[in-house]
């Protein structure tokens, strides 16, 4: 895959490492969660067949994390965007 780092531009996939689903935020106060709720945060992630907002880190260059929307059926990347921004497409 060719991944467009929002900071560096398009680079080969081997320069990146993967971080799974994007936009999963750490709970405000884990101590108030039930075990089940905490397990959801720890272990449960979306796994859609189709477009997926996910995290990547440009480990071999700028070392920045960013997000991508990619189709898991085709590997086609529809958009990449910076951490903290919301997905430009869904």
């Amino acid at each position: 895959m060719l991944i467009e780092c929002p900071w560096c531009g398009p680079r080969d996939e081997t320069e990146f490492h993967y971080g799974g689903q994007a936009h999963v935020s750490y709970p405000d106060d884990p101590s108030v969660l039930t075990d089940e709720q905490w397990a959801r945060y720890l272990f449960y992630r979306d796994n859609p067949q189709g477009r997926f907002a996910e995290r990547w880190c440009h480990g071999s260059a700028c070392r920045r994390w960013f997000n991508a929307v990619r189709d898991t059926r085709t590997h086609q990347i529809v958009a990449t965007y910076r951490t903290g921004e919301s997905a430009p497409v869904t």
């Binding site: 490492h17 995290r55 880190c57 920045r64 994390w65 951490t83």
Partner: peptide
């Protein structure tokens, strides 16, 4: 280092 960067950049920017 990766772990720390991940938290810093994605959770606590």
């Amino acid at each position: 280092l990766d772990w720390l960067e991940e938290w810093l950049q994605t959770e606590w920017p």
